[in-house]
Simulated assay, not measured.
Amino acid sequence: MTSGTVYGVGLGPGDQDLMSVRADRLVRTARHVAFFRKAGRPGQARQIVNGMIMDTAIEFPMEYPVTTEIPLSDPRYNEILSQFYTNCTAHIRSLTDAGEDVVVLCEGDPFFYGSFMHLYTRLSGDIDVQVVPAITGMSGAWTATGAPITWGDDILSVLMGTLDEGTLASNMANADALVVMKIGRNINKVRRALKTAGKYDAAYLIEYATMPNQTVQKLTDAGAKVTPYFSIIVVHGQGRRP
């Protein structure tokens, strides 16, 4: 029996119209569809493809055992997640061993800070794993602001809001253009770091980029509200131009 193939399919930032032709075809014809989600939630990747999956498709929701319940610094965090990814891999491998193809839905691009990478490293090498690239969420975010993110020789830095405040501030100060992802509960820390770096007044907050509930505003106008996980902060570069 010929083994099946695993497809890590990038769905783009959230708008179905921004999916690639190949991603659209794979999603619409998939017999087995896997996706990550938080327990009790529908899953953002799954929501992006609502109405596209065949009624006969078999879905495999991979529910994270932890998200923010345990600090990243706690050794248990990696232990629990490592076992989780191993279990997910075993199920997907059982399908490919039976000759079935599996489409894994990935928000944004599969190789850009996505959970799919943890499956890829466990599966690639002994089964066929194909990755379908996509528009990243940050691209959708800076486009939503209506201004270019970089000019000329600008240096673009991409930072995670989960970093410690000092690391955030020093990297922000050294960047010409800036993207900060994984905001959520880290918003106040990110605000302080931007102020330390002298970039707070130039920052934009984009929530749910390219999705129907997208919002774009200056960070200074956002108030003290807690932003959702799917939010991105950008600071535009002001470099060389003709």
Score class of each variant (00 low, 15 high):
residue 20 S to L: 00
residue 20 S to P: 01
residue 21 V to T: 08
residue 21 V to F: 08
residue 21 V to Q: 03
residue 22 R to W: 00
residue 22 R to D: 01
residue 22 R to A: 01
residue 23 A to P: 05
residue 23 A to V: 04
residue 23 A to W: 04
residue 23 A to Q: 05
residue 24 D to K: 14
residue 24 D to C: 12
residue 24 D to Q: 14
residue 24 D to A: 12
residue 25 R to I: 00
residue 25 R to C: 00
residue 25 R to H: 09
residue 26 L to R: 07
residue 26 L to V: 04
residue 26 L to H: 05
residue 27 V to T: 08
residue 27 V to G: 13
residue 27 V to E: 07
residue 27 V to S: 06
residue 28 R to A: 10
residue 28 R to C: 02
residue 28 R to K: 12
residue 28 R to Y: 00
residue 29 T to D: 12
residue 29 T to E: 15
residue 31 R to T: 09
residue 31 R to Y: 01
residue 32 H to F: 14
residue 32 H to E: 13
residue 33 V to P: 09
residue 33 V to R: 07
residue 34 A to N: 07
residue 34 A to T: 10
residue 35 F to R: 06
residue 36 F to R: 09
residue 36 F to D: 05
residue 36 F to P: 12
residue 36 F to I: 10
residue 36 F to W: 11
residue 36 F to N: 07
residue 36 F to Y: 11
residue 37 R to V: 05
residue 37 R to M: 13
residue 37 R to H: 12
residue 37 R to N: 09
residue 37 R to W: 02
residue 38 K to F: 02
residue 38 K to G: 13
residue 38 K to R: 13
residue 39 A to L: 14
residue 39 A to C: 12
residue 39 A to V: 14
residue 40 G to H: 07
residue 40 G to C: 12
residue 41 R to Y: 09
residue 41 R to M: 13
residue 41 R to W: 08
residue 41 R to I: 03
residue 41 R to A: 14
residue 41 R to E: 15
residue 42 P to K: 01
residue 42 P to T: 02
residue 42 P to F: 01
residue 43 G to F: 08
residue 44 Q to H: 14
residue 44 Q to L: 15
residue 45 A to Q: 12
residue 45 A to L: 10
residue 46 R to N: 11
residue 46 R to V: 11
residue 47 Q to T: 12
residue 47 Q to C: 14
residue 47 Q to A: 10
residue 47 Q to K: 13
residue 47 Q to W: 02
residue 47 Q to H: 06
residue 48 I to F: 10
residue 48 I to A: 12
residue 49 V to A: 07
residue 49 V to L: 06
residue 50 N to W: 04
residue 51 G to R: 08
residue 51 G to T: 09
residue 51 G to P: 03
residue 52 M to N: 09
residue 53 I to H: 06
residue 53 I to K: 08
residue 54 M to A: 14
residue 54 M to V: 00
residue 55 D to S: 10
residue 55 D to W: 00
residue 55 D to G: 06
residue 55 D to A: 08
residue 55 D to K: 10
residue 56 T to V: 03
residue 56 T to N: 11
residue 57 A to W: 03
residue 58 I to P: 10
residue 58 I to W: 12
residue 58 I to K: 15
residue 59 E to S: 09
residue 60 F to A: 08
residue 60 F to W: 09
residue 60 F to M: 15
residue 61 P to N: 06
residue 62 M to P: 04
residue 62 M to L: 15
residue 62 M to V: 05
residue 63 E to D: 11
residue 63 E to R: 02
residue 63 E to H: 01
residue 64 Y to V: 00
residue 64 Y to Q: 00
residue 64 Y to H: 09
residue 64 Y to C: 00
